[in-house]
């Protein structure tokens, strides 16, 4: 009786059904079309930005000549690099501490460590603003010290992510390996460096890339900690977006999108992505 049922599709093969494919296609269109339009029109030789008038790189040239924007990009990359380095160290230590030791108040420490991940960005932003204002944190230091306030804020919200990723990795560690190393005469430090650290390495790399992207992307928290001399790339783009929609903003955004895609690709390659998730 099932005239309209295509027999070759098994009941659970939802992905092969037409309505489901249409739904996926529509969702992906919704997610990607605005970004693709943005990238495409960063190459468009027209100020009005909607009718295609030929291919050009000139807006990329303009972005490269825009000193304010390039300085902001430099600041962002510096902050992201510093925040990543510190987050790796703090995050790894935190992960090892929580994985290895039983101590009073552990649940409280664990909970507090998760807070920067869940606290609304705006609340963290104002907390940083108030904190640095209260301390009278100097704002006229030479570069890169003037970025210290933003960097500190970024480390605070990045390192719990690193701790989370590394701790997940540690869950699969066979403790007998470390004990064997110590039985064979390794010191605490040698066992850490030669046994535990190599095991944690994939987790640390994944955490580092996560921290770098989070830092590079952050707008809200940076918005509250940056001063007139410490503009980051997203803060600069924000002020340009507020002003108007221009091909130059498109080009600047496209640069950041390419950077993100590059980082994501590297991250997935390093983690042997298809094997890890399949």
């Amino acid at each position: 009786m099932n005239l309209f049922k295509r027999a070759e599709i098994a009941p659970l093969e939802y992905t092969r059904r037409l309505w489901m494919r249409a739904w996926i296609a529509a969702t992906l269109f919704f997610l990607y079309a605005p970004l693709l339009v943005l990238i495409a029109f960063s190459f468009n030789d027209s100020k009005r930005n909607i009718v295609w008038r030929g291919f050009t790189f000139k807006y990329y040239g303009k972005v490269l000549e825009n000193d304010g924007l390039m300085a902001a990009l430099g600041n962002s990359l510096t902050i992201a690099f510093l925040a990543t380095v510190f987050s790796i160290i703090l995050g790894t230590l935190a992960a090892v501490m929580l994985w290895r030791f039983r101590f009073p108040g552990k649940t409280a420490v664990e909970g507090t460590m998760a807070l920067p991940i869940v606290v609304p960005e705006i609340c963290m932003g104002v907390a940083m603003l108030v904190f640095f204002a209260k301390l009278d944190w100097p704002t006229d230091l030479p570069w890169p010290l003037n970025l210290s306030a933003i960097t500190i804020a970024h480390i605070t919200f990045c390192f719990p992510f690193v701790a989370m990723v590394v701790r997940a990795r540690l869950a699969g560690f066979n403790k007998e390996q470390e004990e064997a190393a110590k039985d064979l005469g390794a010191t605490e430090w040698q066992a850490f460096r030669d046994v535990l650290l190599p095991h944690m390495k994939p987790g640390i790399i994944a955490g580092a890339l996560l921290a770098f992207t989070l830092s590079l992307d952050d707008f809200v928290i940076t918005f509250f900690t940056s001063g007139p001399n410490t503009i980051t790339f997203p803060v600069k783009v924000y002020s340009m977006v507020r002003f108007s929609v221009t091909p130059e903003v498109n080009a600047a955004s496209a640069i950041l999108i390419f950077l993100t895609i590059l980082l994501t690709t590297v991250a997935l390659k390093l983690q042997d992505f298809t094997k890890a998730t399949a």
């Binding site: 992307d217 929609v245 950041l256």
Partner: peptide, 15 residues
């Protein structure tokens, strides 16, 4: 898209 900057995604939607 989730890895792409929030600000840029919002801007793309605005355009």
């Amino acid at each position: 898209p989730f890895w792409t900057n929030l600000l840029i995604r919002t801007y793309a939607l605005i355009t």
